[in-house]
Design a protein around this nucleic acid. Structure first.
Length: 156
DNA sequence: GCCAACGTTGGC
DNA sequence: GCCAACGTTGGC
């Protein structure tokens, strides 16, 4: 089993939005970065656990947990001219962009903020914390995963 | 293949 | 709103 972190802007789609979806499941569309695409296409497997990270908001940080409920398949929003993520270069016969489905697992009792993550030497190697990192999908090591979850019960 | 210009991300 | 960092584009 692998662990991941995926970013979304809560003003657009946050952990509560996922929780309120039918079956608490949604497709993770709109990723338009090749590195992130490759991970969704090649490496994300059914049941993999994923941190739901809130980005570009008042309190950036990890807000919840979800799991992969469908492995990589074509991101159909790339074919829709009316969609904000439309990509005319993605040919339905040979889709350029891939997405997975994710299922809501839980909302953390508190947001574990980016600011807090930065405080811990145990997390110094997290991809999320690397300078200039802009990936919206990234792996999390098992150690990092468990360490982060251990923070949930601690007062921030 | 180089690289300048441009667009996007995302924290602050 | 600012801006650093980065990815992509396209001329050459």
């Amino acid at each position: 089993m692998n662990y991941w972190l995926m970013k979304s802007e809560p003003d657009v789609f946050g952990i509560n939005d996922l929780c309120n979806k039918p079956n608490q499941t949604e497709h993770w569309d709109g990723v338009r970065n090749y590195q992130a695409r490759n991970m969704m296409r090649d490496d994300m497997k059914m049941g993999d656990q994923v941190f739901f990270y809130h980005s570009n908001c008042d309190e950036p940080g990890i807000a919840g947990i979800m799991e992969v409920s469908r492995e990589g398949y074509p991101d159909f929003t790339a074919f829709d001219p009316d969609d904000i993520h439309f990509d005319p270069k993605s040919d339905p016969a040979q889709p350029r962009w891939i997405m997975v489905d994710v299922k809501y697992i839980k909302t953390l009792s508190r947001v574990i903020t980016l600011k807090e993550l930065k405080l811990h030497p145990e997390l110094a190697d997290m991809i999320l914390l690397r300078r200039g990192n802009r990936l919206s999908v990234m792996p999390v090591s098992e150690k990092e995963w468990h360490f982060i979850l251990s923070l949930e019960a601690v007062q921030s």
